[in-house]
């Protein structure tokens, strides 16, 4: 077991380095750079001389390999550098947005779990009855509604029927819970519904799978009391893959709410992400991709270890 864990940790290093390399190259392959975009955007003409000078300030005139090594050396010392667009430290820019993103992700996960586990279990226990169908239609509808569209509809409804709009800027939960929740509950609902769809399906199929196991079948045949005990027991076993899905989705929610954040005007990591790609803010995009990748890899790792620990049948490969 220990060897397995150590091996897995060592494997993370090349993966992370690879991600760093890909994003570094990808950003530089994109046409245009931060300087060009900054000045071309408004249609104002600025001299080539000024562009050259601004590039030099950002270190873009140095050889590519030099920039790469510099970046990696910085990361090793936990120095993420400054944003090429605003000139402020990247850690500062991320810190401002992280609280909001984490909170939306947590709230959405909460909603999703609240919906998914009972519905998914019910659908499995009543497989191929109308209960199952209704639940499946409800959850697939969640997958089928583009989240940006759902967001726009929600905002319009609030505006038209309640003449009210969620607050336009973020207030910390600890400062003013009312303002905070009235802003974040809507996107959390919109995202949570979609996210619950995946989780409901996963719950349904893994409960179904456990129900097919022999010991459960026997128990169910024996009588009511056993039925209850075993069903509860079975549920516990079935939750493992569900937790995996929830965990991985959660990792993505932090950086992946690109369109939803735009529709609800949330100052989160997803918006920063898209903005930094559009602005060719190399350093910012690189750091964000790195963070999302590390989160993903670590969550994945934890899930794998959990599996191995809980289910000794899994071979450590």
């Amino acid at each position: 077991m220990h060897r397995y864990i150590i091996k897995r940790i060592l494997f993370m290093i090349p993966t992370i380095l690879g991600v760093m390399f890909i994003v570094f190259v990808l950003m530089r392959v994109l046409p245009g750079d931060a300087v060009e975009i900054r000045y071309a955007e408004e249609g104002t003409f600025v001299s080539e001389e000024m562009l050259v000078q601004e590039r030099a300030r950002l270190g873009l005139d140095q050889p590519i390999w030099h920039q790469f090594v510099k970046w990696i050396w910085g990361i090793v010392r936990l120095d993420f550098g400054i944003s090429m667009w605003t000139g402020r430290p990247i850690t500062h820019e991320i810190k401002i947005r992280l609280e909001l993103s984490l909170q939306v992700a947590l709230m959405a996960t909460f909603f999703a779990t609240l919906i998914a586990i009972p519905l998914g279990t019910m659908a499995a226990l009543k497989q191929d009855t109308w209960v199952d169908y209704v639940i499946r239609i409800f959850s697939i509808a969640g997958l089928a509604t583009p989240s940006f569209w759902l967001g726009i509809l929600m905002i319009l409804m609030l505006l038209i029927y309640f003449k009210w709009l969620p607050p336009m800027f973020f207030t910390s939960l600890w400062k003013d819970p009312g303002a905070n929740l009235s802003q974040l509950i809507w996107p959390a609902l919109a995202v949570g519904y979609r996210y619950s769809a995946t989780a409901t399906r996963m719950t349904r199929s893994s409960v179904l799978e456990v129900m097919r196991e022999d010991y459960i079948r026997t128990a169910r045949a024996k009588g009511l009391w056993e039925k209850i005990v075993i069903t509860r027991h079975a549920l516990k076993n079935a939750m493992l893959p569900v937790i995996t899905v929830i965990g991985l989705e959660f990792a993505f929610l932090i950086g992946g709410l690109v369109v939803t954040e735009q529709v609800f005007n949330l100052n989160g990591i997803g918006k920063l992400f898209v903005q930094s790609i559009a602005q060719r803010d190399y350093t910012m995009t690189q750091t964000l991709v790195l963070l999302v990748a590390i989160t993903f890899i670590v969550v994945n790792f934890v899930v794998d270890i959990l599996y191995a620990w809980l289910d000794p049948r899994i071979r450590y490969q």
């Binding site: 690109v258 369109v259 898209v274 991709v289």
Partner: peptide, 18 residues
């Protein structure tokens, strides 16, 4: 598998955007 892990760790929409 490590290569696939790398690709997987980019969110879907971000990868498509890039």
């Amino acid at each position: 598998q490590r290569l696939m892990d790398m690709l997987l760790s980019f969110p879907l929409i971000i990868m498509a955007l890039a």
